[in-house]
Design a protein around this nucleic acid. Structure first.
Lengths: 192, 192
DNA sequence: GGGCTATTAAGACTAGGTCATAAAAGTAAT
DNA sequence: ATTACTTTTATGACCTAGTCTTAATAGCCC
């Protein structure tokens, strides 16, 4: 026997999810049924036709590309900012942030959020990190929301600004860093 | 007059590049010519039809998705690794790594390379960063190649490993960091 | 007007479907 | 086995966004 309807539909769904660029005809061969049966199945499962599936993948990609550059500039979403004083940002830990093995956030993402916040709080065209001392107090897991709080501690005349950033998951401190930032200062230089 | 042929074709090319999900019919309206003219233009410019354009965008995205997860696991390419001793990785600074304003690499990418290397050098299921002291000695610019070298300095009995990572652009040190890594050690604990 | 390019139109065909209708095959219970 | 039902297959008309071929018009320069 070929396969029960329900079984076939389950596999069909998985197959299309896994490789959406497959024609009804190929699916028909795969499950050894007629093309019409595949179409009935898709109808019942509300799976759109090939062209629509391709379009979805493509427009997803397009959305990504359109937003990717501006979003990349700041890691995490800044929800409060008082230039040269303090700033707060939020980062939701998603699957792209964690080790696939154990679902723990990779350190550099917490660092990136904090460092990026330290850059943002400085009211200057050119803000670069010179030095940092950081501590990871506890692991952050998939799904958790990290709130980073930056505070300007000191401004030294050589153009260095010291910023402390503490990150929390629900009032529990998970990360702490002291950032020494360089700024081009009053002289607004051209940067090629 | 409507527009010279050459002019229209130039604009057509740009328009399709900018928003590839546009039909010949819409283009015809846009340039106030017939659909056939648009098709002639596409033929001359060797621009594929809408469906082909969508497919290209979609398969690009697909390739990206297929490779994205495994690649994300290590930042930079590891070219040498002696577990628990030392490791070397290379990261080519591309446009996604730099500030759009001044083409200087964002600090967290250098950190990510170094941290990721520190994780890799530890021969353990679970390696996490506890603490780090880092220095950015000079800016790294778009197009430069960063070579990170990690060296295990010390192993403390509480499960901490101290690793020094120095990163270079052509023998010039651009980054230096001392990483205190936690490892689950002999006891292979369940992590979830 | 001729001669040229550029544009438009018309018709036949394509892939990968949709939608509606109907026939055939398989399965189960009486 | 007959009825009743589900499942599968087939058929044909239609759709979109094109292709490719052939042919008829415009527009312009001299």
């Amino acid at each position: 026997m070929r396969l029960k309807k329900a079984e076939r539909q389950q596999l069909l769904k998985e197959k299309i999810e896994e490789s959406p660029f497959i024609k009804d005809e190929e699916l028909a061969k795969l499950f050894n049924v007629s093309v019409q049966t595949i179409r009935l199945d898709r109808l019942e499962l509300a799976i759109p036709e090939l062209r629509e599936r391709i379009k979805t993948v493509a427009t997803d990609k397009w959305k990504e590309m359109v937003k990717s550059l501006p979003v990349e500039e700041v890691i995490g979403e800044i929800i409060d900012l008082e230039l040269d004083k303090r700033a707060i940002s939020i980062l939701n830990i998603q699957k792209e942030h964690v080790f696939s093995r154990n679902k723990i956030a990779r350190g550099h993402h917490l660092f990136a959020q904090a460092n990026s916040l330290a850059v943002a709080v400085i009211d200057d065209d050119l803000a670069l990190t010179k030095k940092a001392e950081i501590k990871f107090m506890r692991q952050v897991k998939l799904g958790e929301q990290v709130v980073a709080k930056a505070k300007v501690i000191d401004r030294i005349e050589d153009g260095t600004t010291v910023i402390q950033v503490d990150s929390f998951v629900k009032n529990e401190k998970v990360f702490s860093g002291m950032f020494h930032m360089y700024r081009s200062s009053k002289t607004k230089e051209k940067d090629e």
